[in-house]
Amino acid sequence: MSRPRDRAGLLVAALAVAMLLTLIPLPGWLEPLRPYWVGLVLIYWTMEVPEPVSLGTAFVVGLVLDLLTVSLMGLHAFSLVVLVYLVRRFRARMRFFPPWQQALAVLALLVNDRIILLWAITLLGEPLPTWRYWLAPLVGTALWPWIFLGLDHLRLARRQADRH
């Protein structure tokens, strides 16, 4: 019983780091490139960990993110629930994709997320974003292999520590 809880601890730590990375200010021209850190962590966790993230967890994580970034309450909750649902729906296939194909799937997920956000901000009466708006998913995809390897490494290290 203690092992799943330990892994949950790692998930919480990864999410905390992801949220800090979301809040850290960047110079103006880098700001639109900021990847969806929390989304990437949840994609990894849903795809690779035997006990995947539930929709309820995704929802709560989204609410915390909304609170932290002062977004419209429910916006990130919506986006993360969709994200986790899609990954779980196609989990069996995505897990056995070759790496480049998996990265493409991640790109598709992130672009889909941007479309959801675009829909929300047009409803809010905001002006349409510039083309830079679409760069963030590309940056996220470029970072995906590193996040994948990094979290894999941490999880395996944790598992070995458990065994000894």
Binding site: L55, A58, G62, L72, L75, F78, Y85
Partner: peptide, 15 residues
């Protein structure tokens, strides 16, 4: 999924 999306939508509307 629908239940959570509805709930999120409701929160956005209230906010």
């Amino acid at each position: 999924l629908m239940a959570y999306l509805l709930l999120a939508g409701l929160l956005m509307l209230l906010d």
